[in-house]
Write a protein that binds this DNA or RNA. Structure first.
Lengths: 207, 207
DNA sequence: GTCTCTTGATTGACCGATCAAGAAGGGGCT
DNA sequence: AGCCCCTTCTTGATCGGTCAATCAAGAGAC
């Protein structure tokens, strides 16, 4: 059996993503982890410190747990962006549209989070966005010159979070699919615009 | 003084959007409304019934409270879409990025809401989307033929909700602005595509 | 022997919900 | 008019339950 500290951490991770932070009681975590309250409070002074540890785990897990599996066998940087969105789609599908992005859920659930919590939520979003920006930078030559790849990466996260929110509410993948289709259409148009402009330049007719 | 029932309802409306549903206690509502618990439970059997009444209020208020003010003096249907997003931006700005869309917050806060609650959240999203679809339908001739205006309207809601979520987390308007800019760029490209295709057709070179 | 970790009963605060008692108002009756 | 009754709403103490957090005592490892 894993050490108690990790059992508590994984139990909290699971429950926070399933039921949210506020709806998960310390007793729930203890039951799931098979531990006693004294042990939990030995490692973590308060429930919020458990949350902080979970958020640090998410932060450190973005690449190994999320991106690496989603990108296996996918080399094209633009396709990697959509493979990542596909991984979220699969999570929605596998859970009947119950669980989406735990960071987004916690971010909206805590209306005025303590600074350290807000900071870690922020860092989680930033890490995700930065990785997507990396893909877009790799594909920079296929996008219109001057494209703000960070802003575009933020828009990708927006698409995922907004789509997940609606799909969870409607208990249907439709809204998620419509959102990703919109993003796909947008990026395709951007690529076409970059391409035609490149053609213009080749022909010397660019503006 | 308004009747007690309405004072309770407005107090709940305010508190749910400020602190969320789970973090608002019945005692909070009573204090804000200046009422006693017996009165609240005389009108609403449970706290959840208060939530249902609040969600019905939001549903009925989408046009008169949100769209009508946002669209005042704006006639162009595409500009109306962005005027609506501008109204959300203003709400974020005026509250230092603390309050966003209360429906979205409640939707993510309740992971497995009772069916009537989930239904009303769904209906709220649907009403919003349908109104935006109305704008897009009015501008149908400016969009590529065959455009799925409902899917595009869902994508507009996705943009708003995803942008609000990130801006609230980062306490900066940047993410919201980047998301709306992405959507604006997308729709501009759609209009350009529709336009060039119309030109093609005029010239008889369309595919 | 000491440091790290575990046990589980216990605490006080707060939660949503209940309830008996009473105030307020408005017809209908004489 | 004056009175009564019945419905509607208000009061606020109170309930059992659950919450996060505490703590004294003990187990186990080195």
């Amino acid at each position: 059996m894993e050490p108690t500290r990790e059992r508590i951490l994984f139990a909290a991770l699971k429950l926070f993503s399933e039921k949210g932070y506020l709806s998960t009681s310390v007793a729930d975590i203890l039951r799931e982890a098979g531990a006693n309250s004294g042990s939990l409070y030995h490692f973590y002074p308060t429930k919020q410190d458990v949350l902080l540890a979970v958020l640090e785990m998410y932060r450190d897990g973005i690449y190994p747990m999320l991106l690496a599996p989603a990108w296996e066998g996918v080399d094209d940087p633009i396709e990697r962006v959509f493979a990542l969105l596909g991984a979220y789609r699969e999570m929605l599908r596998a859970t009947d549209c119950l669980y989406g992005c735990p960071i987004g859920s916690i971010a909206l659930e805590l209306h005025e989070p303590d600074p350290p919590v807000r900071e870690l939520l922020s860092v989680n979003f930033d890490g995700w966005v930065t990785h997507v920006k990396g893909c877009l930078d790799q594909a920079r030559h296929r996008l219109p010159p001057g494209t703000d790849t960070r802003a575009l990466a933020v828009f990708v996260l927006t698409t995922m979070e907004g789509g997940v929110m609606q799909s969870r509410t409607h208990r249907t993948l439709d809204a998620f699919d419509a959102s990703v289709a919109g993003l796909r259409s947008y990026i395709t148009l951007l690529e076409a615009a970059a391409d035609s402009r490149a053609g213009d330049q080749r022909q010397g007719t660019g503006t």
